[in-house]
């Protein structure tokens, strides 16, 4: 990564942070409803991995904490925000909501609300890539607690058995809602859990985007070169509650303070400053640019967009005009 890349990445991560914080406000203002899971603290994970991948070319799938992954894959932040507002202009036309951002044109294959659901879907995407003969890979981002679903083990086994081009990224933020990892999981180091499937794996600091990038490069090279699946564990932390209804009461303040000192934005910013490539003033200027962009473009678009109309209530349930519904095209 050269300096320009690093600066762009810093801007993207700062945008992600501000975007999510603005979602929080919009939720409090009751513009956004339902469940809202935010990403602050974990930005280096999606950004580092996808920086090493080919967003828009590789397929990406994840859970409900999905806004930023979609945006990094190329989804328009305006449409993501409009989705959160439930608008017809939203990325899922207001039907999906925060947990179900989709942007298939950019090969962002969606956010899913059932913990563990995407594991086999990612393997299936890998299977189809293999059948089509492309050089894409399938990337699945999920949390640490998701690894306790049977689908995790079932998918790893199949991915290895059939040599599927899948990268599993575990965003290990140490908690599944209020349950700390050592209270739910017999083996705390997630990267060790895949050894039984003979899948190569690594554990990396998920707060340092450059380290994530490097680890992801290695992982992606492995997968793209046809050597089968890889599992990358990233150690990270979410700065907010699990979702909006969660106060984080179960976390120790000392632990929170420790992780807030390991803010992925600050780590990258300070490194650029130390290298003499950047100043705090520049950072502030970028920040205020971003805040303006979010207000003047992203929020304005969501605010001004129309809601879906009730007449369209039954749209998108089943295929329209599918000739085989009536016994084939004659």
């Amino acid at each position: 990564m050269n300096v320009a890349d690093k600066k762009r990445l810093l801007r993207e991560m700062l945008f992600a942070r501000r975007f999510e914080e603005r979602c929080y406000e919009a939720y409090v203002e009751r513009k956004i409803g339902g469940f809202l899971h935010l990403y602050p603290g974990e930005e280096a994970c999606a950004h580092g991995v996808l920086e090493a991948a080919r967003p828009g070319h590789d397929y990406v799938i994840t859970g409900y904490r999905d806004h930023i992954h979609a945006i990094k894959c190329g989804a328009d932040p305006k449409k993501v925000m409009a989705e959160l507002y439930g608008r017809e202009t939203g990325s899922s036309r207001g039907r999906g909501g925060s947990m179900h951002i989709f942007d298939v044109a950019n090969r962002f294959m969606g956010g899913y609300a059932l913990v563990g659901g995407p594991f086999p879907l990612a393997a299936g995407i890998g299977k189809a890539i293999q059948m089509k003969g492309g050089d894409e890979i399938s990337i699945c981002f999920l949390g640490d607690a998701a690894n306790n679903q049977g689908t995790f083990h079932e998918s790893l086994n199949m991915a290895k058995l059939w040599n599927l081009p899948v990268l599993y990224v575990c965003e290990n933020n140490l908690y599944g809602i209020g349950t700390r990892i050592d209270r739910s999981t017999a083996v705390v180091d997630q990267y060790k859990r895949v050894s039984g499937y003979n899948i190569p794996s690594a554990q990396e600091d998920g707060q340092d985007v450059e380290k994530v990038y490097k680890a992801a490069r290695k992982a992606i090279d492995h997968v793209r070169s046809g050597k089968g699946p890889y599992f990358l564990e990233l150690l990270t932390y979410r700065y907010r509650g699990h979702s909006m209804s969660d106060s984080n009461a179960y976390r120790a303040k000392a632990e929170e303070r420790m992780w807030s000192k390991r803010d992925p934005l600050i780590i990258l910013r300070d490194r650029l400053i130390e290298d003499g490539k950047f100043t705090k003033e520049e950072f502030k200027a970028i920040d205020s640019d971003i805040l303006d962009e979010i207000e003047d473009e992203v929020i304005a678009f969501a605010e001004q967009s129309p809601d879906p109309v009730v007449a369209d209530l039954r749209k998108y349930v089943l295929a329209e005009d599918d000739p085989y519904v009536n016994g084939g095209a004659h």
């Binding site: 409803g33 339902g34 989705e83 439930g86 608008r87 899922s92 207001g94 039907r95 999906g96 909501g97 925060s98 179900h100 809601d307 879906p308 009730v310 369209d312 209530l313 039954r314 349930v317």
Partner: peptide, 16 residues
């Protein structure tokens, strides 16, 4: 209920 998956949008959800 209407025979559809439940929509996120508030107005559609209410209608469903």
């Amino acid at each position: 209920a209407v025979d559809i998956p439940i929509p996120y949008n508030h107005t559609l959800e209410k209608a469903a």
